[in-house]
Design a binder for these strands. Sequence first.
DNA 1: TATTGTTATACTCTATAACTATA
DNA 2: TATAGTTATAGAGTATAACAATA
Lengths: 172, 172
Amino acid sequence: MTSTPSPLDATQLGAYFALIEASSLLKHAVEQQLREAGDLSYVQFQLLATLGDSPTGSRRMTDLADGVVYSRSGLTYQAQTLEKRGLVTRSQSSDDERGVTVTITDGGRAVLAEVFPGHVAVLDDLLFAALSRADIETLADVLARARDHMRQTPPRSAQPRRRKRTTAANQP
Amino acid sequence: MTSTPSPLDATQLGAYFALIEASSLLKHAVEQQLREAGDLSYVQFQLLATLGDSPTGSRRMTDLADGVVYSRSGLTYQAQTLEKRGLVTRSQSSDDERGVTVTITDGGRAVLAEVFPGHVAVLDDLLFAALSRADIETLADVLARARDHMRQTPPRSAQPRRRKRTTAANQP
DNA sequence: TATTGTTATACTCTATAACTATA
DNA sequence: TATAGTTATAGAGTATAACAATA
């Protein structure tokens, strides 16, 4: 079936493993901090932070999902959870009646504020402490490029319907 | 309480977000491939791959846990799952009667072999396609340094008992 | 007394499929 | 017909605490 692809060389393997392990360790540490400081999961923090960044404090569900969550129902679940805690509100979008607009509340901003210093501290201690200024710049540049490429690249055996513009043929 | 730490600058934020997003996208894609090709979760793949790397095909539970899993019971659960499928065996360690030695079976190696080409293909397509040789080398170097540092750095509010050598005082 | 590993249990999160309603 | 979102449901994974056995 699949012809053996050129195996990875040592450097590639090293980059791959280091990426996975480093991000795993970092995420684990950050998750602990977020849980202790504000009883937030990482996804919940990402959602709140995204809303907090928005000038209006609002986003549509679909836009919110973007990098954070990989299924609609997963986002609904998290939005409900956050709403129950009073950290966001949900209301019908004004322009598109199908849409739901999620808005961060003052309570949500408060939790964000409570959590943020510790969050930054973890990043400083764990990720940035071992890296030079140049390292950080390089990391930002290279990983941003990788990320952008991955965003554009559809999965190998893509689901029938892609995110947008299902223009061309999908099945072989 | 906590004095506001120096907030992150744009580059740091960029590096952090890019790291999290890139690793998340990559891991998600890889997980799909592993699931389809061999019905393996990422953790299970990591465990099998670790065993496969070992010259004896064996590891002790404690050693296996290392970077892969963050709780003992989690490892037990995964080891049981893999054992049920016949991909590993578990037996009492010869030197330490408390210990359990996990060994990859031929079946385990077969699944690993089945899964590997697609795994490499995903990495090539998603991670390495957008990066130059130099990028990959830099990434490997910088992230390995970050990872090593994180491994050595205890969590801020450390659990009473650390992995090894609980030499010094833990509580303030 | 400390360490190794398992068990029981509870919980969080994720994903699929079926469904409703609007564009 | 396609898109936005919810619901129901099921399953995987994780972590904590209590426990047994060995060092």
